[in-house]
Design a protein around this nucleic acid. Structure first.
Ligand SMILES: [Mn+2]
Ligand SMILES: [Mn+2]
Ligand SMILES: [Zn+2]
Ligand SMILES: [Zn+2]
Lengths: 150, 150
DNA sequence: TCTATATTGATAACAGTTATCAATATCAAC
DNA sequence: GTTGATATTGATAACTGTTATCAATATAGA
C-alpha cells in the first residue's frame, strides 16, 4: 500500500532531487489539514514545530507536491491560492459562496462526459479542467442580502 | 437601439459618477479590439491617441465596465487578466491550449442546465460560473510535444 | 456662473510569490 | 565511513499586477 510519503520520495528520486527533513515536515503538516488549506495556515502550524523554516521553502515544496500530483492548487476569488490533497481523492468541482467563501464539492458524470466530447470535437487533448459555480449559499441568503465580500 | 456608450453613460449617471473624455476613449478603443484583450495592448493603443493618460485610469475604467456588465474579466493561466466584450455577446466557455495559449469558445446547453440543477440541489443561488477546459490544441500536438509554456 | 464633489495622473504601496545567494545538507560513489 | 558534486536552505531583495493616496483639475446640477 503506497502512501503519500513514498510517492513523494519516489518522485524526488526520479527527478534527482533530495528528500529533506523540511520536505517531510511540510507534507506531514499539510496532510494534517482537511479540505482546502491556505499557505498562511500551513506556515503558522509549521513554525510551531520548527520556527526556523523559511516561507520560500514552503512555496517550493508545495510546487513540488503539485508537480507530482499529490496536491492541487486552486485560485478561487480573493487572489489567495488554496491547496487540496489529491491522492486517493476523487475528482470533483466546486460551488463557491461569494458572500462567505464557503465551498461545496460536487461531481457530475455527465458534465465530465460532455467536456470530453467537446474537446474531441475541436481536436483538443484534454489535460484538466476547472469548473466553479459562484453564487450565494443557503445560509447567506437567509441571513442578509448585504454580503461582506464581493 | 441602445449601444455600449449609452449603456455606460446611463450606468455612470445612475451611480452618480461622471462621463469623462478618458472613459469615452477607453471604451472606444476597447471596442476596437476583438476577443480577449490584455491591459497591456489596450494601454499601448490608448497612449497613441493620448500619451498623457494614466494606467490607473485604465484599471479604474475597466472595473466600471465590468461592474456594468459590458465587459467580463478572465484570469486564465499566466496570472494576467484579459477582458472580453459582453454586450450582445452570447455566453460561452473556453477551451485553452496550455502550449500556445490559444482559446476556443464553445457553448453546451446541457452543461449549463446541469449547473443550475446542481445549485438548486444545494440551495445555492447561482450568480455566474467559470468553466475552462485545459489541453493541447490540434496545432501544438502536431508540431512538437515540448510545449513552450506550462 | 458657481460649487460640491467626482476624476485625474503620478507614484507610492501592497500582496503574493519567485529569484538570488552564500552557507549547509544530501547521497551516490568510492 | 569519507568524500565531493550538487541540491537545498533561510533571509531577503525583487518582481508583477493591481490598488491606494493625494493634490490639481474637471464635471454637472443648481
Ligand atoms: Mn475540493
Ligand atoms: Mn471568450
Ligand atoms: Zn455563504
Ligand atoms: Zn496550442
Amino acid at each position: 500500500m503506497i502512501n503519500e510519503f513514498d510517492l513523494f520520495k519516489d518522485f524526488l528520486h526520479q527527478q534527482k532531487l533530495r528528500w529533506t527533513p523540511q520536505r517531510k515536515m511540510i507534507l506531514d503538516i499539510f496532510l494534517s489539514f482537511d479540505g482546502h488549506v491556505q499557505i498562511e495556515s500551513l506556515y503558522e502550524k509549521i513554525r510551531v514545530q520548527d520556527p526556523s523554516i523559511g516561507i520560500a521553502t514552503l512555496y517550493r515544496t508545495l510546487k513540488l507536491l503539485v508537480d507530482c500530483e499529490l496536491v492541487e492548487a486552486h485560485s478561487f476569488q480573493n487572489g489567495k491560492k488554496t491547496y487540496e490533497r489529491m491522492f486517493h481523492v476523487r475528482h470533483h468541482d466546486h460551488l463557491i459562496c461569494t458572500s462567505c467563501g464557503k465551498t461545496i464539492e460536487f461531481e457530475h458524470p455527465l458534465i465530465e462526459k460532455y467536456q470530453v466530447e467537446i474537446c474531441e470535437a475541436y481536436g483538443f487533448t484534454l489535460k484538466s479542467h476547472k469548473m466553479e459555480l459562484l453564487g450565494i449559499c443557503n445560509n447567506c441568503r437567509m441571513k442578509n442580502n448585504n454580503p461582506p465580500f464581493l
